[in-house]
């Protein structure tokens, strides 16, 4: 027993994904908000915007990059408000908005025909500092590595790991099977490890 206790810290522990600071909206809340937005009530529209602005902007930022994030987020919100009349409630409002965001971001990338906006140098220029700034430097390296991933991997990593959504939610947003979603996440993380190189664990230690 003591053996196990002693050796336990060397093993990474499994944990469940946790939504990051999201207040889960109930279906009734969503329905009321949607109805008010459909009636064109300015306060309801602003409330919906504030409820989703960080998620939409954050996703767009991490998929299309900083320079185009505002443009894509703006496009998403305009689509949300314009299409809300046709929203049938087959999925949760959040799922629908995430789906619009992912689709808008991916088509934006396709339209621009852009490849990667972050070069290899961005990763190597950010060595792990030995001070308390470690976490923010690691965050910067992770953001830079995210920018170098294929867009589909970026989308699944942001949805599952950054936003803390379940595989079922990710699959509904990406319109794929749960199994596909899991295998994509596995490949995306492997690619990230490859891009970041060994030693991420020391940086977080």
């Amino acid at each position: 027993m003591s053996d196990l206790v002693e050796s336990a810290p060397i093993l990474p522990s499994p944990t469940l994904a946790e939504p990051r600071g999201r207040v889960p909206a109930t279906l009734a809340d969503d329905a009321q908000l949607i109805a008010a937005c459909r009636r064109g009530e300015a306060r309801a529209m602003e409330m919906l915007y504030h409820q989703y602005k960080r998620r939409v902007f954050g996703m767009a930022h991490r998929i299309v990059g900083a320079s185009d994030a505002e443009e894509v987020a703006q496009e998403v919100f305009v689509r949300v408000f314009r299409a809300l009349a046709n929203f049938r409630g087959d999925s949760a409002l959040s799922t629908w908005i995430y789906r619009l965001t992912v689709n808008a971001s991916l088509s934006h990338l396709a339209k621009r025909g852009r490849r990667q906006e972050v070069g290899d140098e961005a990763l190597t220029e950010l060595p792990a500092p030995p001070t308390t700034e470690r976490d923010s430097a690691l965050a910067a390296r992770i953001e830079a590595a995210l920018g170098r991933l294929p867009a589909g991997y970026r989308a699944i990593l942001v949805l599952h790991d950054v936003e803390g959504l379940s595989h079922e939610e990710c699959a509904a947003i990406l319109e794929c099977r749960v199994g596909t979603c899991k295998s994509q996440l596995h490949k995306a993380r492997a690619k990230m490890r490859e891009l970041l190189g060994p030693g991420v664990r020391e940086e977080r230690a």
Partner: peptide, 27 residues
């Protein structure tokens, strides 16, 4: 495994990104 756990934790704790105030006006 430790690399992947560190990466996963790093992704989970990435800072929330606030949109610029101009976003709502643009919408």
């Amino acid at each position: 495994a430790r690399d992947e756990a560190a990466l996963r934790d790093g992704l989970r704790t990435l800072p929330t990104l606030d949109p610029p105030p101009s976003l709502w006006a643009g919408v």
